[in-house]
């Protein structure tokens, strides 16, 4: 039986839908359960927070996972990145308050304060630009940080842009485009190659 991790949040529904399209009989609603098997007992699914995904995959607790490219890049996740599933398109962007005088990253003053959940990608981005900034690592609700004065800009994932709009923020630059990826554990991809390959073939047919 293949062990698969599905992330909580925006990628949850499209991931399950894809499995259903590929002929796997998985329920759309897990209720409060975090582990479930499909009715033919081909798959065992677990629900995991997106940023916990690298741990589950790298330690081989699951064979396969659906995970956003943003998480793969932020955590330098060590795994096979097998397929771009195309769904869950969003972008990692730099945003500033509407009233801010900044309209481009190049205008940022040295040591400008940035709030982000993506500390590593933010650091890499500014380093490549040769800019020194202060990054405040946040766990969530990043949009509040410039409003209350903790930061002057944020780096966060944007899909529709509604949350930014609601909090009077504007996007000024895109760092990364992210979609959902199908990944596999390094060793399990080899040790369960037949099972995993036939799963990939089915997924290929379902996209």
């Amino acid at each position: 039986m293949l062990k698969i991790a599905v992330p909580k949040g925006v990628l949850f529904e499209p991931s399950l839908k894809l499995l259903q399209n590929c002929g796997y009989s998985v329920p759309s609603d897990f209720g409060r359960k975090l582990l479930i098997e499909d009715s033919k007992q081909e798959l065992s699914l677990i629900i995991v927070r997106p940023f916990d995904m690298p741990l589950y995959v790298e330690e081989g607790v699951v064979d396969i996972a659906f995970v956003g490219k943003d998480v793969i890049e932020e955590t330098s996740m060590a795994c096979f990145e097998l397929m771009d599933l195309g769904h869950g398109l969003c972008r990692l962007s730099v945003a500033v308050p509407k009233y801010s005088s900044y309209r481009s990253v190049d205008e940022f003053h040295p040591f400008i304060k940035i709030g982000s959940k993506y500390q590593n990608l933010a650091e890499k981005y500014f380093m490549q630009k040769g800019m020194q900034v202060r990054i405040f690592p946040l766990g969530g609700s990043v949009e509040i940080s410039p409003i209350v004065g903790l930061s002057e800009a944020i780096i966060d994932l944007v899909s529709t842009g509604n949350t930014l709009k609601a909090n009077n923020l504007v996007e000024i630059e895109t760092i990364l485009l992210s979609t959902s990826r199908l990944v596999a554990n390094d060793a399990n991809y080899r040790l369960k190659r037949k099972e995993i390959n036939s799963f990939i073939t089915k997924i290929n047919g379902g996209i």
């Binding site: 330690e59 554990n185 060793a187 080899r190």
Partner: peptide, 9 residues
Amino acid sequence: VFVTGSPRS
């Protein structure tokens, strides 16, 4: 080489 029981080579 990979073996059952280790998630990496």
